[in-house]
Design a protein around this nucleic acid. Structure first.
Lengths: 294, 294
DNA sequence: CGTCACTTGCAATTAAAATTGCAGGCCTAT
DNA sequence: ATAGGCCTGCAATTTTAATTGCAAGTGACG
């Protein structure tokens, strides 16, 4: 809600307006509702709540908390926001046509989704499970995992480091503390793993790190796009996947998905290490609730 | 239903099959039904019949004449044909859930791809272009853009800050220099924009920032998942999208794609500012080749 | 350690939707 | 014309959905 009005409001607006008063069960219900608004608008409160795994009364109470008199009124709102036409007289065909235009019509989001989905589909054939597995094995068998990337790749490097730490691995994002880079590398040895991220041309820093790592005998993994493929001392393992189509899709969706696959695969082959660490992390986060917001 | 189930049949098929036995009132009802099937699938028999100007009993009898046990069953059929035709992720999500179960062994990548693609498909209906546009407009009209997120959201925050800077905006990732956070906020004013990222429960830091920003009159944007939706002083604009299906998909693919859409849309409405800045950046990078690897 | 505020599930109650028996009306064929 | 068949509305009934009071549970706060 940019400013003031209330008459036409979207579901998310209404939710955020009452956000403070919503309970755990409410969010479970909203998950189901938002996941498939069309279906939710059709079903009755009982079906929705059973799909969300909660008591039917919870649906009623959610509706009331959101400011509706009861569930039927809430559902009517959901329906109205989908149909988006008055309830008066039906000049149906025109309205349906309009809706179809809207649904299939172009929009920024829609075109981005098309391109991302296409890129992911390509991944299916471009990257093999074997490669994923080899990455995972290397990480599993490594003592410490060093991650590095610059620019866009830096954010991915940070993310992967975070996730690996949570999975119980000694992972260090070298990009996070560039000034202390030398100190971090002092102990780099043959048992360690360096995972590089490079899109477009590899930065000098990446190449330098690569050389150092090779000299010290560390294993080197690289996740790149096609342009970043030319790493001079070749890494031990390399996965290269093109991001998106024309132009430089700045998106990290494709490489991030590959990284996710590696981390997930790792959890399947490290004999419970990831699972245990993740569980420990979850428990820790629950135990000190208000201080460290994860 | 009365007999064995007819496998798949469209409404028009069913109608033509029983065309001989239909009455005048049935026709009037079917007119209304066919005019707006979506709406018809949502409403109950009473509403439909009153909209058609007939007695409620007529709706029941039509359903029975068409071979259904009663009106609810007829409506269920209408709904099923809409859900199946309109979007196929109903079947998809179940299949994905099943596949994720046995994901540890084979086809990790494939199952992750399924899950991410399904999540992106859902985005199509969950987030409107309007919301994207409003986000973009707010950023365009802001003086400085502050970004903040913790944990996984921090990497996204960093990425968006990076991309906004390249697009010519004065964007600051507050997470990058937490110790200097107070200094950064000293000048926060009504012309500034604060863009928060929060998945799962919002961290205290996020809530605190939110309150400060509101107090100072800054515009607040929020990109969250369903669980992160409960921000207490409601932000000016909020986009919430559920990430993936079962379990907690740690993936940032969905929110990242939303952010990409905002940034892309921004380039379309800021009168060349983004384009010019991106071009300037590209030229700069080309000009000093080996030093700053992007 | 108790108290308060709040959430949640259950079960009883209430409201609403759906169904059906019945009677009146209309058309048609004898 | 009139008997029979069929549609139709009404109203009673059944079935289903929605609501709410209540008690048990939970966590925060004194």
């Amino acid at each position: 809600m940019t400013t003031t009005h209330e008459p036409p409001a979207s579901l998310t607006e209404i939710i955020s307006r009452h956000a403070g008063r919503l309970t755990d069960l409410d969010t479970r219900l909203l998950n189901v509702l938002l996941q498939d608004p069309l279906r939710a608008a059709m079903e009755n409160g009982k079906d929705v709540s059973s799909r969300a795994g909660v008591h039917p009364a919870a649906a009623v109470r959610l509706a009331q908390r959101l400011g509706f008199a009861g569930y039927p009124e809430f559902r009517a709102f959901l329906q109205a926001s989908l149909v988006k036409g008055g309830s008066d007289f039906q000049d149906g065909s025109a309205r349906i046509a309009a809706r179809l235009m809207r649904a299939s019509g172009e929009g920024v989001l829609s075109s981005i989704l098309d391109s991302e989905i296409a890129a992911l589909q390509q991944l299916r054939s471009a990257v093999s499970d074997e490669n994923i597995r080899k990455f995972a094995e290397t990480i599993r068998d490594g003592r410490r995992i060093f991650l590095f990337g610059r620019s866009h790749a830096a954010t991915l490097s940070a993310l992967v480091a975070l996730r690996l730490r949570r999975s119980g691995y000694d992972a260090v994002d070298l990009g996070a503390a560039l000034p202390q880079l030398s100190e971090q590398l002092v102990t780099l040895g043959p048992e360690d793993v360096l995972w590089l991220f490079a899109f477009r041309r590899p930065s000098p820093a990446v190449l330098e790190l690569l050389q150092i790592a090779r000299k010290r005998g560390a294993r080197v993994l690289a996740l790149t796009d096609i342009q970043g493929m030319r790493l001079d001392p070749a890494p031990d393992l390399l996965i290269a996947a093109s991001r998106g189509g024309p132009g430089d899709s700045q998106s990290l969706v494709v490489p991030m998905t590959i990284a996710n696959a590696v981390i997930l695969d790792l959890a399947g082959i490290d004999d419970g290490r990831s699972i245990a660490a993740l569980e420990a992390f979850r428990a820790l986060r629950e135990s000190l609730p208000p201080l460290m917001g994860s």
